[in-house]
Design a binder for these strands. Structure first.
Lengths: 267, 267
DNA sequence: ACCTGAACACCGTTCAAGT
DNA sequence: ACCTGAACACCGTTCAAGT
């Protein structure tokens, strides 16, 4: 963190002011690489152009020659992040469709959970280039194809995969946002009152359920993730069992109508 | 947007420099109220202290007398947002437990979807004070109690409610983040290429599923929300049907083991 | 006890150069 | 064609006053 470089040296001919770099000495790839290095240290949220200039040993404004706005740089980083993500979550066929999709969901989760920067760029900031998005689409197709092969209709396969995808991304994002808040809270020395107080008088059931000290309320931990994931997979399994003749599960028909009414009432 | 007020008037005795306010002329509640008004106009992300000072007709630094950091102000706003949210999503018993929980989930979703500021403060920024959190906890207890009454064990009720809660919050947050990106993207005149191109050659199934122009890939729309919600409710219904003797659904036992192995391998 | 402007260190971005 | 510092308009926050 040598931030104060040359601040008190004045503009004498001391020559340690940092040489002017030659023409081809930086390129977009170097900048992106340096940006990831810096993000690893300070986090995406604290990644700034002046900081990046310092990290690269480059005048801040030089970066603007290659990326006209910080947003453009972040987009380029997001595209690369997606390539990393797709590489880390290949489609791997297991014994059956259910295990395959189950594993895939967990691989996606683990990849994001183990790499906050991926999470911040791909899930929270989004904004993929169409070209990069195409990459992700290819992956999705393979997963859906395996569901169709297992006996789901194309539409059911699409819905099932979408549900799993939203579940993975949603729970990861909630967890990530929670982490961020914790970080900024204890950074400022605020309340370390992580586990919120459950009063057994007013909320006996919650007190009982959280008594083990393990469970937290409506948390996004692995067990919770697995639970809802299996709900979705169970549903798909029943769709396959009943065969392609009946559309929908039958069970959900009544509530689908209910939902439609509700949506109509709101619009 | 009278930003340039008095910039070129110089510090003459023109008296329009804004009078010094008297002692008790502002209080925390006014500031919070003004902050919400301003947030409604410019969004939580663009809410700044100087902007708020101008909006209130108050010197910026005056705000700091009542809120030592911007973060403190946002926390106070979040607490109030939670009260608004709890008021908007009361526990309402319907014909049966399933309809009750189904309605409750939809009410939560609609409340957040219809109020981005609530979403930004409560879901994305989080950081509730323990006191405010207590408010939410009371609501949760009632929902879980109704599930227990319907025949679920305390633990199953807790897990079911957690799954629903994560589902609601996760899908709302994904949707909100998506909106934010769209807003900042077309603000800068970037690609309006909203619907990403699906190539029927490489991804025939996706092309077919999205051919109607309605479906988008792994989106977080109402239909998708309803789908996974019913998966969770179906699961709970089966738990009730099989009675309290057998823990878990039986179906999920194998995959639970699988998951445990996976978790052990990673840690 | 409350309200205030000046000032500081940061940020993203533009401009008018330098080579 | 590329690299640069000075400068601008913003931001959050602190300080040393004013009343």
């Amino acid at each position: 963190m040598n931030v104060d470089g040359g601040a008190f040296v004045a503009k004498q001919a001391t020559t340690d002011k940092r040489q002017r770099r030659e023409r081809g000495s930086i390129n977009p790839d170097d900048i992106i690489k340096g940006a990831f290095e810096l993000a690893e240290e300070v986090g995406i949220d604290n990644l700034s152009m002046p900081l990046l200039g310092r990290h690269l040993g480059v005048g801040v404004t030089s970066i603007y020659w290659y990326f006209r706005k910080k947003d453009d740089l972040l987009s380029a980083m997001t595209d690369q992040a997606l390539r990393t993500y797709v590489f880390a979550t290949p489609y791997v066929a297991a014994d059956d469709w259910r295990e395959t999709l189950h594993n895939h969901a967990w691989t996606m989760r683990k990849t994001f959970m183990g790499n906050p920067i991926l999470c911040d760029l791909i899930l929270i900031r989004s904004a993929l280039s169409p070209k990069a998005a195409q990459l992700g689409v290819l992956e999705v197709e393979k997963s859906i194809a395996s569901l169709v092969e297992a006996g789901l209709s194309a539409e059911d396969a699409f819905e099932t995969y979408s549900a799993v995808s939203v579940h993975v991304r949603g729970s990861v994002v909630l967890q990530r946002l929670y982490e961020k808040n914790l970080a900024s809270a204890d950074g400022t020395g605020a309340q370390l009152d992580d586990r919120m107080a459950i009063d057994p008088e007013s909320t006996p059931l919650l007190a009982k359920a959280t008594a083990d000290g393990l469970h937290r309320i409506a948390t996004t931990d692995d067990a919770n993730f697995e639970y809802a994931l299996n709900c979705i997979l169970d549903h798909a399994e029943r769709l396959i069992a009943t065969g392609p003749k009946s559309k929908g599960s039958g069970k959900t028909t009544k509530s689908s109508v209910r939902q439609r009414n509700r949506a109509a009432a709101t619009n």
